[in-house]
Design a protein around this nucleic acid. Structure first.
Length: 260
DNA sequence: ATGACGAGCGTGGCTCGA
């Protein structure tokens, strides 16, 4: 089965690219981030007439996440536990029956956290602590579990073309990177690193300053796998050609292949 | 040295992102 994550940067502005990529890729489950749409304004009919089940956790103007799937989910949740007052739409997860078994897929849009020294960075770290607690609970379930999305964390120096440009950025702070490592230490596997030793496995290139033609990228979109999912890992693809399309998102899809 | 791009909201120039 193919499970994919993509920060689409506006699902209404990117519908043509989304449909083209879905046709080309035919994934079983897709997590989208930054749909920047309320649930009612998402182009649901365009997707449903092509056979996609659509589950959303939208928000006006920014944020917003969604799960598309070929089969309907068995169960669905729309919030990351731990902060009932948090109104930002950044998390959705579902259980699917695929390949003769159940698999849980969570799609997240982790806070950016900039600028440093503000409540935005605190919110990022608090959100990561909530994510760690939730992941720990989910791992106890011992289902194949895919925890994927836009983490807004550059894990390691090899995940950024120009590390010096990011030293004062929330995406590359020691605290952000340590929180990401704590997720791995729970027993989650970073699928890209497990499946490939390739360099320059970037997933984001800024719109500005010619970042894409210069390949000045970063790796911030990640697919983490529970042990039960990691043993099924066949391969990973970063669909970087999508960044060269007309009116692209600044992120590209990351796709994992898990065997039955 | 700085800004640079893009979406959304909603109609002018903000906020937000990374």
């Amino acid at each position: 089965m193919l499970v994919a994550t993509w920060n689409i940067n506006g699902v209404k502005a990117r519908l043509d690219a989304l449909l083209a990529w879905l046709d080309e890729r035919q994934p079983d489950v897709v997590g989208l981030q930054e749909i920047k749409s309320v649930d009612e304004q998402l182009p649901r009919a365009e997707l449903e007439k092509r056979g996609w089940h659509v589950e959303t956790h939208g928000q006006k103007g920014f944020n917003g996440v969604a799960l598309l799937s070929k089969v309907a989910p068995l169960s669905l949740e729309r919030r990351l536990p731990g902060a009932p007052g948090d109104e930002q739409s950044r998390f959705i997860e579902a259980v699917y029956a695929l390949d003769g078994g159940r698999v849980r897929v969570a799609c997240l849009y982790l806070p950016n956290g900039n600028p440093l020294g503000t409540e935005k960075f605190t919110y990022k770290l608090d959100w990561m602590a909530r994510l760690e607690a939730h992941a720990k609970t989910r791992l106890e379930e011992e289902l194949p579990f895919v925890l994927m999305g836009d983490y807004n964390v550059i894990p390691q120096p090899e995940d950024v073309r120009e590390p010096a440009a990011w030293t004062n950025d929330a995406l590359y702070q020691p605290e952000s990177r340590a929180a990401y490592r704590r997720l791995l230490h729970l027993g989650l596997t970073d699928a890209v690193r497990a499946a490939s030793d390739a360099g320059e496995t970037y997933t984001f290139w800024d719109y500005q300053a010619g970042s894409w033609p210069k390949n000045n990228g970063i790796r911030i979109d990640h697919v983490l796998l529970s042990p039960e999912a990691a043993v099924r890992l066949q391969g990973v693809s970063i669909d970087r050609h999508v960044r060269g399309w007309e009116k692209p998102s600044d992120h590209v899809p990351v796709v994992v292949d898990l065997r039955a």
